[in-house]
Design a protein around this nucleic acid. Structure first.
Lengths: 206, 206, 206, 206
DNA sequence: AATGAATGAGGATTCATTCAT
DNA sequence: GATGAATGAATCCTCATTCAT
């Protein structure tokens, strides 16, 4: 167990504080001072560790992306059939650590950041490709050549549900969102028996 | 032809300039001065007409929302069957005046604005309800009680495609987006004959 | 008489304040706020008019250089003989508006600025060339081919007296400096009759 | 050979690094951190040894002044006649270890430092007095009562050449500078035979 | 109606300096 | 002796907003 130096701890604290601040502000107009204060340090130290505001935002973005990737990997690990694999991805998208108000707000703002920041664009592109690849891999055994196309649809649907979720008004919870996605995906698959598979692993959902 | 006073002209110019600036910046971090300069007037005058930056942003938002509503209304006007009505909505979403880089960037940022601004939230909620209502109305004759649910899915999918479009990298054009939506919607409907309907009106797309 | 807009007035005030501040601080570490306050306005306005601190410093530099050039031109105007021309340049260098503690401090610091700022370097190079040219032109009739060389010496001597003047301790006044320069220049010229010429116009010195 | 403790070594390294940094920046706006990093230690240690930035700068200044004094002393040691003594001083001023870009930049900035820092002013005044004294001592046998006056001129000329050298553009090398000084000094002396003396020791120049 | 002039408030960033270890 | 950690104080700069004309 490597002893954590103080640097990783501080960086971690700043990243967490950044996500919280973005969630609270609903935008990227968060001051480094506020982030630092929430993380329990001076803004000068935040600059010392990250070099600048942009780096802090990107670190927060990477953090969320990594969290999501970890969740997907962990959910997929126990999947045995393609249908289970597909459902694992859906669960990862709408399960508790990721489908939080503040994380969703962060996602939304990362899309904005990507408009102006090449690195943010790159990260989001990587995320999208990985999701597409995971979905396609799971879909291929079930729908063959149509896999890529359907993966694109499901990916867009996930993003759409996320962005709508950011409007707290009339948004559904993670469970409802997951249920909706599952129903939709079921309809996109050939047979009717997939439905069962999805429900089988339903208990795994937090 | 009502002679436009100078005020509406100036307001219109500011709204247009605002959308262009948001498109160029990719965020709401646009200065009133730049907007005003692009609209050919002083920033003081912009304030005079709108009262403040927030009002300008909201006016731009209303403008885009109205444009979209108009487009939907106009497309639906010539629709005769439920399927045509459904397709009309899709066409309105991905047709040229709305599916522009700058308009898409604006949409994305209005979601951000809605995080902090109640009026922006209200506008987006109204938009969402209207879209849901239009979709449900078109879907009901075809899928009955499942209409609301499917409308929600289609709505989310539209938003998802929009947000992904904002990442220029690997984004598809409006025509491709429309095609994808149509294929997906087809699969959500009971029979296979709907597919034909969609293709029938295909020529109407610009 | 063109009515001065407010902008030239403000710029002028800022330039003057900048020189005073540099004189008081003895270095370029003067804050825009202090300069602006001394000029009777907000620092924001200073930025508005000049765009940034560097521009303000360069404007101050140009101001001093122009003042010096004007002084030289005005002194030379009434010179009839080469020797008088030469003496006019010396008088311009050590006469009252230029040979002030604050102006001298500014000069010194402009040399520092020129180490890092290309435009400042350019300005100083222009100044040096012009001085060299003026001196050479005056010297040629008196010393022929040696003019350029002697001009270089006199130019360096002027700069040397300036820099030493900046050390208030043990520095001589403008009159003493001028006298020293005149004596030295006299020795550099062939005959002994030049001495008289220099003394003839001595009364013109303020 | 006294074994140097670690402290003098560190101090020496810091002083050298300071001069290099000033040379690179062209100004006194060098950070203690950079100086310390270049000297291979932490900025905290630099503070520990010197007490503060100002002390470091002053130490660098003293170093340069001492170096110059040593050079003069060493050059004068082998001089037998007054003319040789005079030339020795000139050689010391423009010989290689002193007439470097970074040392010249440092000199210039020490004049700036002297504007605000009494100790820097004192050091520069001491330097000037010593130079004046050395020059006068060498000149007296040759020009008698005019020695002090001519020493002043030569001193100012040396400083002037230095400051101009800092503007790399169009600056001459050390050899040229020395040649110019020698020519000028020759003209300031009564007879023409001094010229020979200067050329006699010319070979000593590096 | 229209604008140039002006500013207060705020934010990112830098840096000398301190201190516990 | 040596340093990483930490910060307060500055400083440049931007911008929404106001106001007199």
């Amino acid at each position: 167990m490597p002893k954590l130096g103080v640097e990783p701890i501080r960086r971690q604290a700043l990243v967490k504080a950044t996500i919280t601040e973005i969630g609270a502000a609903g935008s990227l107009d968060v001051t480094v001072s506020k982030i630092a204060r929430r993380a329990g340090m001076s803004s000068a130290l935040a600059h010392h560790y990250f070099g600048g505001k942009e780096q802090i935002l990107l670190a927060a973005m990477r953090h969320i992306l990594v969290l999501f990737a970890d969740e997907v990997r962990s959910q997929i690990a126990s999947a045995r059939t393609p249908a289970e694999r597909l459902d694992a991805i859906l669960r990862a998208s709408f399960a508790s650590p990721n489908f939080t108000a503040e994380v969703i707000a962060a996602w939304l703002n990362f899309y904005v950041l990507a408009q102006a920041n090449p690195e943010a664009l790159r990260l989001l592109t990587v995320y999208r490709r990985r999701l597409q690849s995971n979905l396609t891999y799971a879909l291929r055994p079930m729908v063959g050549a149509a896999a890529a196309d359907k993966a694109e649809v499901i990916g867009a649907l996930i993003d759409g549900v996320y962005i709508r979720q950011s409007l707290r008004a009339g948004a559904m919870g993670g469970a409802d969102a997951l249920a909706m996605l599952r129903r939709t995906v079921d309809h996109m698959l050939p047979g009717a028996d997939q439905r069962k598979t999805a429900e089988m692993v339903d208990g795994a959902m937090t």
